[in-house]
């Protein structure tokens, strides 16, 4: 950690050294007293309380629920929840549809995330180059879909894909985007449409923060735009790209709204199409204990995947 944070942590050390240098005798310096305790409490407490209530407690509660099983006295007896150890997790790992849905979103992410971020990077670089005129217009036009909520975007594209109602019925009557083979990629297109502009803006802002001198020199040496982009700009904005990639990975694993909407357009989208749909379907059976176990596995997988990705890219950068 650098500059401003370091400045604070250095403070106690500095005073201690100063005291020693001044030859002031005395007891071992006491633990530095926290100043402004009341203010800190006022600042941190509201968020801390809400974060605990609506993040930490639910996580704990999900884990707790996932360790319970329903026990019935006979076939029609009253149901009671008893501790079942990891038996819900055994069910999770035996659940074929759930793992199929995980495979589906992983395939989705492996294709959609690189395409989306590739496009976002391309547009950001073009906006940052002298090649494009009307930057303000393009920036805004590409960003407009981000203002469309996922549910609404899915409804719109549902009509655009429809064989009869689509303005592109010449295409949609020949290719059925809502078929079992294609519907996953039809949804991928909806997600891409919504989020390219958003990711483009994050990357573009990172590009704007690069001091011009850094590539002015390369330009004078005769490097073309492509070369500058590849060798100077992209390495410098890697942190921004990693950030967008992590958010995209998280988003992909959580896919819910778009497929849920597509269920009314296409029978190929089943009630266990994505992991989150499986959670929702399972909880409305209701089998909350199993649904809680699904949630825990999913959250853990998301966490591990994004964390691994982060560490992996950091190591690559360090090399």
């Amino acid at each position: 950690m650098s500059a401003s944070t370091a400045r604070f942590t250095d403070v106690p050390g500095d005073t201690r050294t100063a005291r020693r240098l001044a030859g002031r005798p005395g007891p071992r310096p006491a633990k530095p007293r926290v100043q402004h305790k009341r203010a800190i409490l006022i600042f941190v407490l509201p968020f801390g309380a809400l974060f605990s209530l609506f993040y930490l407690v639910p996580i704990g509660y999900a884990i707790y629920e996932s360790l319970l099983v329903i026990k019935r006295e006979g076939t029609f007896g009253a149901a009671t929840e008893v501790f079942g150890g990891l038996s819900q997790y055994v069910l999770v790992f035996q659940n074929g549809p759930f793992w199929q849905s995980v495979g589906r979103v992983l395939a989705f992410g492996a294709v959609q995330v690189p395409i989306m971020l590739g496009l976002a990077l391309l547009f950001a670089l073009l906006l940052d180059s002298p090649l494009v005129r009307g930057k303000k217009f393009f920036r805004l036009a590409f960003f407009v879909p981000y203002a469309v909520p996922g549910v609404i975007a899915a409804i719109m594209w549902g009509y655009l894909y429809s064989p009869n109602l689509s303005p592109f019925s010449a295409v949609t009557q020949n290719i059925n985007f809502l078929s079992a083979d294609l519907v996953l990629w039809a949804i991928a297109n909806v997600v891409t449409w919504v989020y390219v502009g958003y990711n483009m803006l994050i990357i573009y802002s990172a590009l704007l923060a690069i001091p011009t001198e850094l590539y002015e020199a390369a330009r004078l040496d005769g490097a073309g735009q492509l070369r500058i982009a590849w060798s100077v700009k992209i390495p410098l904005i890697m942190p921004a790209i990693v950030l967008t990639a992590i958010f995209s990975i998280i988003g992909t694993l959580q896919l819910l709204a778009e497929p849920q909407v597509f269920r009314s357009f296409s029978s190929a989208v089943t009630s266990t199409f994505t992991p989150n749909l499986t959670v929702y379907t399972t909880s409305s059976i209701p089998n909350v204990n199993l649904a809680a176990a699904f949630s825990v596995v999913l959250a853990l997988a998301t966490f591990v995947l994004s964390f691994t990705f982060l560490k992996f890219t950091q190591r690559k950068e360090a090399q």
Partner: peptide, 21 residues
């Protein structure tokens, strides 16, 4: 660091336990 971990926890994973609570 806990808050940062919270950034990586998807809000949808919390919806079900929140409902139960």
């Amino acid at each position: 660091n806990v808050v940062l971990g919270g950034v990586l926890v998807p809000a949808t994973a919390l919806a079900l336990p929140l409902f139960l609570i």
